[in-house]
Structures are given as C-alpha cells and as structure tokens.
Amino acid sequence: MLKYGIVGMHDLVQDMLNWERFYLSGRYVHILVDNLDIANTNSVNLRAALSAALLLLPPKFTQEDLFAKICSLSYMGDLRMLFAEDKNKVKKIVQGQFDLFHSMYKPFLQEYEAKDFLRVSASGTDQANISQDCGLPVTCSLVSSLPPAIRSQMGMKLGEKKRINEYGRAINEVIIGSREEAAKCMQKVL
C-alpha cells in the first residue's frame, strides 16, 4: 500500500528540483515535518513532470494517458520494469489514484491551457480529452520548465545558446531543432 522512509530535507529538495536521482521526485511524498517551503518546491517538480510528459505525448491524448506518462517517467531506464515488475504497474497506479493525479495536476493543466499550450475538453465520462500545440515555441517553453540538471545534459547533447531573461541575467537555453529531437534527447537523459 505504501512505502515509508526518512530523508533529509536538503536531499528531498535537491531531488525534486534537479531530478538528480529521480527517485523521490517521481513519487507522491507526504511530509511530516516541513521546515522549508516544500509545497512550492513540489509545484516546480509537478510542472516539470507535466512538461516532460507532454513532450513525450502525441498531439491528442486522454487525461489517463497523460497521468500514465507522468507516472512512467520515474520508471524510465529501470531494468526491473523489463523482467521483475508487473507490466501493468503504471496503469494500475494511475487507475487507483486517478483522483489524486487529477487534483495534483489540475492547476498546471489550467495554467498550460491559459497559455494555449493545451486544449482540454470533457467527454461523457470523467475522462478529459486533451490536444496540445506541438509547435517549436511551445516545445521550447516545455523544455525550459524541466529541471536545470536535465536541461544542462540536453544542452550538452543538442547545443546551447545564451539568452538574457526578463531579469537581465544571462541564461543558457537548449537549442531545439524539432519537438521530436527534444523529446528523444530528454528521454535518453532521463
């Protein structure tokens, strides 16, 4: 039903913001003692997970497809998924926790819908159908929402250029030739 453990807050924050180990950031973590702003940190993590999943999804998909892709991120490259784990593990997690996924990601789906990255349309069931803009500007925006460590590794593979952000600071931006190229690169990095 659940796994439990004790982790240092610094380690938790680092994994949620940078996906260095991509273990804690890929799970629903309940904090008993919060002496930091974990809710804000988790928002950054959830937005990054949504962005990563969208890069890997086709132009049209269902809400269940989206949550399954998000859930599957932390299992990418896990050799146990090839032979030791239930092949339907991700699907079972999503179906069993659909309402939790919906409540966690709803604000970010609304944010992306307001930016015209997505169009969410309700169907006759609880399930929503989603279509996304797969153009290069949206792709670049999604990549910019990924954790810095992931963007840095993608930049080493695809190239980087310096850009001045809204605060006047120079930042490195990944050079993206196509959505497919960005998705494949990100998937390899993860």
Rank of each mutant, 00 (worst) to 15 (best):
M1C: 08
L2K: 06
Y4K: 03
Y4M: 04
I6Y: 07
D11R: 08
L12T: 11
V13W: 09
V13M: 15
Q14C: 15
L17I: 09
L17K: 15
N18Y: 15
W19E: 12
S25G: 15
G26W: 10
G26T: 03
G26S: 12
V29Y: 06
L32D: 07
L32E: 11
L32G: 14
N35G: 11
I38Y: 12
I38C: 07
A39D: 12
A39C: 02
V44L: 09
N45P: 04
L46Y: 14
R47K: 14
A48H: 12
A48N: 12
A49K: 15
A49D: 10
S51R: 02
A52I: 07
A53G: 05
L55R: 03
L56H: 13
L56I: 03
L57K: 00
P59D: 13
P59N: 06
P59H: 08
K60V: 05
K60G: 08
T62K: 03
Q63C: 05
E64T: 11
E64W: 02
L66A: 09
I70K: 01
I70L: 01
C71L: 03
M76V: 10
M76Y: 06
G77Y: 04
L79R: 01
L79Y: 00
L79P: 00
M81Q: 09
M81D: 02
L82I: 00
E85S: 01
D86K: 01
N88V: 00
K89L: 13
K91G: 01
K91L: 04
I93R: 04
V94F: 05
Q95W: 01
F98H: 08
D99P: 00
L100C: 04
F101A: 10
F101D: 06
S103F: 02
M104H: 06
M104F: 03
P107D: 03
Q110P: 00
E111I: 02
Y112A: 12
Y112E: 13
K115D: 12
D116Y: 12
F117I: 06
V120W: 06
S123K: 00
S123Q: 03
G124E: 03
G124K: 01
D126E: 06
Q127W: 03
Q127V: 05
A128F: 00
N129L: 09
S131G: 02
G135C: 00
V138R: 00
C140N: 08
V143A: 13
V143I: 11
V143P: 09
P148S: 15
P148C: 06
I150R: 12
R151F: 10
R151Y: 05
S152L: 09
K157G: 05
K157F: 08
L158D: 10
G159L: 10
E160Y: 06
K161H: 12
R163L: 11
R163C: 02
N165I: 04
E166S: 10
G168E: 14
G168W: 13
R169N: 15
R169Y: 05
I171C: 06
N172V: 05
N172D: 14
I175N: 11
I176E: 13
G177Y: 01
E181M: 10
E181R: 03
E181D: 05
A183S: 14
K184T: 13
M186L: 11
Q187E: 14
Q187V: 02
V189E: 15
L190M: 12
